[in-house]
Design a protein around this nucleic acid. Structure first.
Lengths: 121, 121
DNA sequence: CCTTATTGATTACAGCTGTAATCACTCAGC
DNA sequence: GCTGAGTGATTACAGCTGTAATCAATAAGG
């Protein structure tokens, strides 16, 4: 699975949300904050195709694009990469880190505890 | 805090481990797997200086380099960025994700539980 | 039929990144 | 004093990224 650039990722998100879509449809759904032209979206789609992150099927004169892998798979790989790089592959320091930065609310803590409890059984 | 590229990050790690260091000393300590020449390390140091990620003090004819911010700060920002992008800012889905991928051992789970317990008090 | 809008493909171009080589300077040793 | 080794600065260059514009083909509408 090749690396996906930040901008390309925005396009993947659109297609993970809904697919297959035409280039124009993707352009409509990209977050407006990006301020992308249709041309830019088309560039992204081409690059993602070249990287093997998207597949396309012809539909008349145009293509329908769809992701070549599931969001969960990509997200898992990317998270693993970060945790390896920054926390020696261990999740506990990440949790500790976030806790220390007050990025964990009381509700978060309880939610994770519940999840872990389930995992143990 | 400006973005740090993957290769630059390797240099930061060296200096977070031990600093201040000269360029030659950094080069010695960079993971050999990189196969970097001294010249490459010097380029990285210059770029990190330009980005404000390093500070340097003159020592005779050369510089001593040191990080301009703590590893924890950088790591916290970078983790936050990923969690925002991929998990809507919430940690629980990340934990769930990793668990589903068998990236969590029984020991991890207990460790995190202990940590959370402490946080609650 | 002719024009216009659409669509993928090709090209553009600056900035960042990886990976150096070269240059100019200077200090240390002979 | 001269030479060689070490040092930061400058330059190099290809590949990736963000952000398009342009082009050629074609389908659709009048």
């Amino acid at each position: 699975m090749e690396r996906i650039a930040e901008g390309e990722y925005a396009v993947m998100e659109v297609l993970w949300e809904e697919s297959p879509l035409t280039a124009a449809e993707v352009a409509e759904r990209v977050p407006p904050g990006r301020g992308w032209s249709l041309a830019t979206v088309k560039t992204m789609l081409s690059r993602l195709l070249a990287k093997g992150a998207l597949a396309h099927e012809q539909e008349g004169r145009r293509y329908l694009y769809r992701p070549a892998f599931a969001r969960e798979d990509y997200v898992a790989e990317e998270s693993g990469r970060l945790i390896d790089r920054m926390f020696g592959g261990r999740l506990t320091p990440l949790v500790a880190q976030l806790a220390a930065r007050d990025r964990l609310t009381q509700a978060d803590i309880e939610e994770i505890e519940a999840l872990l409890k389930e995992l143990k059984s």
